[in-house]
């Protein structure tokens, strides 16, 4: 787990340094958005393959979707509740955020 964490943080940090120092220039910089989109779509395509190849997931896709919907309601509901609990401590430019 520690190795995974260090690996992810390391890559994130290296990317951060590249972005902060402006080390990526020219055509690559101009096309960063496109490169990112292509990488993302390729990754999601591969993810689709791993799902499609697995018969058990395909046969349970509707129950997985239902579970996902229920979890979404709870994650969003509790995050709204969490912000509600801290809102009185968050003061902006000497005035409370109006509700």
């Amino acid at each position: 787990m520690l190795v995974t964490l260090i690996k992810y943080l390391g890559i994130l940090f290296i990317g951060g340094v590249f972005g902060y120092k402006g080390l990526i220039k020219g055509k690559i910089e101009a096309n960063l958005g496109n490169i990112q989109t292509i990488a993302l779509l390729f990754l999601l395509f591969i993810m689709g393959i791993t799902i499609g190849i697995n018969d058990e997931i395909i046969s349970n896709i509707f129950s997985i979707g239902l579970k996902a919907g229920i979890i979404t309601i709870f994650t969003m509901g509790f995050s709204i509740l969490g912000v509600r609990l801290v809102r009185k401590y968050v003061v902006l430019e000497d005035e409370e955020v109006e509700s």
Binding site: G15, G16, F18, G19, Y20, L43
Partner: peptide
């Protein structure tokens, strides 16, 4: 596919890092 996903994930995180930086 596992190897491809691992590499793809690194690329994705690298670009997110650039955005944050």
């Amino acid at each position: 596919l596992g190897v491809i996903i691992d590499i793809g994930l690194m690329v994705l995180l690298f670009f997110v890092g650039i955005d944050i930086g």
